[in-house]
Design a protein around this nucleic acid. Structure first.
Length: 454
RNA sequence: GUGAUUAUAGCUCAGUCGGUUAGAGCGUCGGAUUGUGGUUCCGAAGGUCGCGGGUUCGAGCCCCGUUUUUCACCCCA
């Protein structure tokens, strides 16, 4: 017999775990709706042509590809097979892939459904994504993202609302977080003034590692990408910027005086931070120039949220992308969005044990089963209770009392109805409170009233 | 892709120097207790020691290969 197992980097969730996860999803959804976002879904799989090339070279490698159905080698000639060129062969035997994130499928959705949507379009989407990464702490191959995006509006008000959503979600979940913010335009400006505009990706990837590997190693990495020592010298004051957000922005204004795009970035951040202050956003917001984010479609503000009390990667991230729909043939549509990493939030909540006590999902009342006659008597009671919205179940077979009571106990069902000859004669049931152990005879009307109060 | 690490009962883990029949706790099932759960006590079931090879009189333990787990790097939620 084979040992049962699931693929690496995936997880099962028990009923208790699902109740906890639904608490997260429901909290996030409620906040999204407060800001006028509406839900959509897209397929788990997309055409590979939709996904390829959107996440950089690394991202392409991390896509799960789906083998074509049927005789997928039929159209491959002998020569191609013997060449053993995997990447070339892949395009012929695989035309579909599992989605890598929700943003790119969303961009595809917008272009494909443009006749059905009105701009600005505010959508949220809560679905799993798949990445062929090596799993490790806080990193899975299948995980849920909760995305909110607005497309078709350049207004920085959208950035404010996304920050307010972050603020509200983590306030409700009781997780202490720090929101890091930066702007890709500032990073571009920096690359521009040191005369290395084309190396912007290399530079941002390197400085993103600032707090991980330190200044010296970052400089080494930048140098290894073929950037001159003079340019690296010019980078130093920027990397070592400190003080309040306002201080940093002021310093940047003089450093980036010669870069139009850089100044634009500074100005955008000033507006966003000003709005946050006016709206009294509680979450600590930190301008962090080392925040670059890997996904290369961002063009404006970029965000990342870190939990303060748990050692885990970022739990939320996002930013503005000016032309994501362009690759699907719809230029000039700007979007901004963020993604809550539900699985990491779940890990954080588990570690800090921050779940509320109430669990509305569970059964509220169990009918004990003595035999066929008693069962026939109970079934109409169950139907009535259910029609009133009470979660109720009956033990499906006449097992020993002990076993049935243990079942209620394990499942944390707060009340048990016991029905035998004397109860049936009186047209009542015996209701037992599992917590106190007290029990009392109740008529149908009394029982309904009692259960609805609970 | 690179470097470590792990694997023994359903789960978590012991297992001495290589030596008789591989243990514990939890869980499951049964009993003490046939209309009353949690606590307690008693009992039972449950193992190809990841897999394949090698060394040895003898391997859970040593060697080689392989798979798997976890962690770090890369990248990311």
């Amino acid at each position: 017999m084979q040992k049962p197992s699931i693929p690496k980097g995936t997880r099962d969730f028990t009923p208790l775990e699902m109740a906890n996860r639904n608490y997260i999803f429901n909290t996030i959804k409620e906040v999204f709706r407060l800001y006028g976002f509406q839900q959509i879904e897209t397929p788990a799989m997309e055409n590979l042509s939709t996904l390829m090339g959107k996440y950089g070279e690394e991202g392409d490698k991390l896509l799960f590809k789906i083998l074509n159905s049927g005789d997928y080698l039929a159209s491959i000639d002998e020569q191609e097979l013997t060449q053993r060129n995997s990447s070339k062969l892949t395009t012929k035997i695989s035309e579909k892939g599992l989605r890598y994130d929700l943003t790119v499928p969303f961009a595809r959705f917008v272009v494909q459904n443009r006749d059905k949507i009105t701009f600005p379009f505010k959508r949220y989407q809560i679905q799993p994504v798949w990445r062929a990464d090596r799993p490790q702490k806080g990193r899975y191959r299948e995980f849920y993202q909760c995305d909110v995006d607005v497309v078709g509006s350049d207004s920085l008000l959208n950035e404010l609302e996304l920050i307010q959503i972050v603020d509200e979600v983590y306030r409700r979940l009781k997780i202490n977080v720090c929101l890091k913010i930066n702007n890709r335009k500032i990073l571009s400006g920096i690359a521009e003034i040191i005369g290395q505009a084309d190396k912007i990706i290399d530079i941002t990837v390197a400085i993103d590692k600032m707090d991980k590997i330190g200044l010296e190693k970052v400089n080494e990495e930048i140098a290894s990408k073929g950037i001159s020592a003079v340019a690296i010298d010019k980078l130093q004051p920027i990397l070592c910027l400190s003080g309040s957000n306002a201080d940093k922005l002021n310093s940047l204004k003089s450093i980036l005086a010669q870069s139009e795009i850089g100044l634009k970035g500074v100005e955008e951040l000033e507006v966003i931070l000003g709005l946050c202050e006016r709206m009294n956003v509680q979450t600590r917001i930190e301008l962090d120039l080392t925040l670059a984010r890997g996904l290369n479609y961002y063009t404006g503000a970029i965000f990342e949220v870190k939990a303060l009390d748990v050692e885990i990667g970022s739990i939320t991230g996002g930013g503005r992308y000016d032309n994501l729909t362009g690759v699907f043939g719809m230029p000039g549509v700007s979007g901004v969005g963020i993604s809550f990493g539900a699985d990491r939030i779940y890990d954080v909540l588990n570690q800090l044990d921050l779940y509320p006590a109430t669990r509305s999902e569970q059964t509220q009342l169990l009918f004990v089963c003595f035999g066929q006659e008693e069962l026939n008597y109970c079934l109409p009671w169950l139907a009535v209770l259910r029609s009133k919205g009470v979660n109720v179940e009956v033990y499906p077979e006449p097992s020993k009392m002990k076993k049935q009571m243990s079942y209620a106990d394990d499942k944390k069902i707060p009340f048990v109805a016991i029905v035998g000859e004397s109860e049936m004669n009186q047209n009542k049931i015996m209701l037992k409170d599992m917590k106190s152990g007290m029990q009392e005879m109740k008529s149908m009307e009394e029982l309904i009233e009692f259960m609805l109060l609970k």
